[in-house]
Design a protein around this nucleic acid. Structure first.
Length: 278
DNA sequence: AGGATGACCAGGACGC
DNA sequence: TGCGTCCTGGTCATCC
């Protein structure tokens, strides 16, 4: 799943490839992957635009264009952005959108499970389809995200800390992988009610989040199921994960068997020894 | 309002 | 092999 490190890796690697290129041709293979506006208006507004910059907010990838337009990708669970050099490749089964540039290269949006979407918006005006982007909290990698910020956001909340780490209005960019990893590193049980955490635990958790995300960024993200970098290569974080996707295996700290809990269809991995519920 | 739950979606894994 | 069923999870709508 693309979370902050994956999304930032995609952004970093695409940046030198797409900047200053002009969109010469647009193929929409699946119109309902266009979240806003209508596919017709999407094509009309996007055609012949030049790419100025690419940046990220939370799990969103934003590409700024001439005429104050911004192209926004949200990859959800399984979306991929791929860059093809001078491509004449036939459209593939899970390909949703392809932008072909003036030099023949192409940026392509793949989304096997069809939940991810692309939006074309004007400036910083967010249509209702993009309320998630408007309401994002701070990213744990930013300097403003410190233990005081986290404490203030969660001190009156009785919800499980795991749920609140996934709340994008609190921790922008954090998803299932890195919330599990950070909770392990901080020695906190994912089911702990947030208001029961001590200040020192919140400090620990803040440090753990920053450390994990930095490490994941260095290894170019986690390729567990669907995530790939724009050139099709894999990230490397999954090779050194503490708990994510390691249920049934031994804890790297204490040797206990990594377990998991479920809420809805989400799976939370943890070490029953290192992360005890008080 | 906060918290919990289910819907969305389709590929892939699994069982018979 | 082929078919059916289940699992997956970020976000949003819905309900209590």
């Amino acid at each position: 799943m693309p979370e902050l490190p994956e999304v930032q890796t995609i952004c970093q690697e695409l940046s030198p490839l797409i900047k200053n290129k002009q969109i010469q041709h647009i193929d929409i293979y699946r119109p309902d992957s266009i979240g806003y506006p209508t596919p017709k208006d999407f094509v009309r507004s996007l055609l012949n635009q030049k790419i100025k910059d690419i940046f990220t907010r939370g799990k969103y990838i934003l590409i700024s264009l001439s005429k104050n337009k911004i192209l926004v990708f949200h990859l959800r669970l399984s979306g991929q952005l791929r860059y093809f050099l001078n491509s004449k490749v036939q459209p593939q089964k899970t390909e949703r959108l392809r932008l072909t540039f003036n030099n023949g290269d192409a940026l392509s949006f793949f989304e096997p499970r069809a939940l991810g979407k692309v939006y074309l918006i004007h400036d910083n005006k967010y249509p209702k389809e993009l309320s998630g982007l408007k309401n994002l909290g701070l990213e744990p990698t930013s300097n403003d995200f410190n233990y005081k910020y986290l404490f203030n956001k969660i001190k009156n909340r009785r919800a499980k800390i795991k749920t609140l780490l996934l709340d994008q209005t609190i921790c922008a960019g954090v998803g299932n992988i890195y919330s599990d990893e950070a909770l392990f590193l901080a020695g906190i049980h994912p089911w702990t009610p947030a208001n029961k955490l001590s200040l020192s635990e919140i400090k620990k958790l803040t440090r753990a989040l920053k450390l994990i995300l930095r490490r994941a960024l260095k290894t170019k993200g986690s390729s567990v199921r669907d995530y790939l970098r724009p050139d099709g290569s894999s990230g490397g974080y999954q090779l050194s994960a503490y708990v994510y996707n390691r249920e049934g295996e031994k804890c790297l700290k204490c040797g206990a068997i990594i377990s998991f809990l479920k809420f809805g269809n989400r799976r939370t991995r943890f070490c029953p020894t290192c992360q005890q519920l008080r």
